[in-house]
Design a protein around this nucleic acid. Structure first.
Ligand SMILES: [Zn+2]
Ligand SMILES: [Zn+2]
Ligand SMILES: [Zn+2]
Ligand SMILES: [Zn+2]
Lengths: 142, 142
DNA sequence: CCTGAAAATGAAAATCGTTTTCAATATGCC
DNA sequence: GGCATATTGAAAACGATTTTCATTTTCAGG
């Protein structure tokens, strides 16, 4: 876990970005927190690691991490954007409780997921699926 | 199409809601527009039908329609909430272009969708899937 | 048809997550 | 160390959505 974070920081550095105490803190916060955390939660955790981290910096750092492919945005349908450490965590989806809002990681994919949800003690009543990519008109960018 | 709208208005009325020119206009706008329209687009269209429709009323009406099961929210990952006429339009998903942002309706489901996207001239590079329901702790509400 | 209680409307103000601005500070290659 | 440049934070700006509240409208009942 600590090596992982340092590797990511190296990755940032080689990408020409500077490594600061704040970024280290945000990255460690992400590494210690679970899936799909909102910015406020990440900020709170990062602050426990390095008190001198402003909310704005968390926003900016998260976007930088997404840009580097180290973290990814997670959209669940509520009003806040969530983030989690990137694809190295493996492609996965989430079970979102309509009642308590809890988010549970689901490693299976490709829609035997309804069954998979049930296996997790979760009753799937709806799902949201969006396919992202490039339309015929636009084509895939170089 | 016009009968459809009247049926929905009747449904609202029997649910104890009042039918107003504004609601009629919003409903007609939804019926005439395609999938996954944002509130601004719905407002603009509704205004062409009945100029005396405020944006706030559109917001309120849309939520009322969702509450009645006549319309549904569509979350694509950008900052705006989109709406479309309800399940009677049939369960479906969307192909969202990362380049131009266009949204295309996809009737297939259950993740042979990658192939399906390609059939539509669309190159799927990512997908977002969330399963919604009730976790073991909460259980399904009565 | 009137009437009145309750629901709906619109304009403006309030919220709230997120972004921008800008002056001060920190990083990392010489 | 020194400098060019990236990063930071506080405050202000933003943009979508919600709330407030006084006014208007719907519709059940008489
Ligand atoms: Zn996750
Ligand atoms: Zn998947
Ligand atoms: Zn649709
Ligand atoms: Zn589906």
């Amino acid at each position: 876990m600590p090596g992982r974070v340092d590797d990511m920081l190296d990755q940032l550095r080689s990408a020409g970005r500077r490594v600061t105490a704040q970024r280290r803190a945000v990255l460690q916060a992400l590494a210690r927190l679970g899936c799909a955390q909102d910015v406020e939660a990440i900020h709170a955790r990062a602050r426990r690691i390095h008190p001198r981290v402003g909310l704005v910096t968390v926003y900016r750092t998260l976007e930088a991490l997404v840009g580097e492919g180290v973290a990814q945005r997670v959209v669940l349908g509520d009003d806040r954007t969530r983030y989690e450490l990137g694809q190295e965590h493996g492609h996965h989806h989430h079970l979102v409780c309509l009642s308590c809002g809890s988010v549970q990681r689901l490693d299976e994919c490709h829609l035997e997921s309804k069954r998979a949800g049930r296996r997790h003690g979760f009753t799937v009543t709806a799902h949201r699926l969006e396919l992202l990519g490039y339309c015929a008109k636009c084509g895939v960018p170089a």
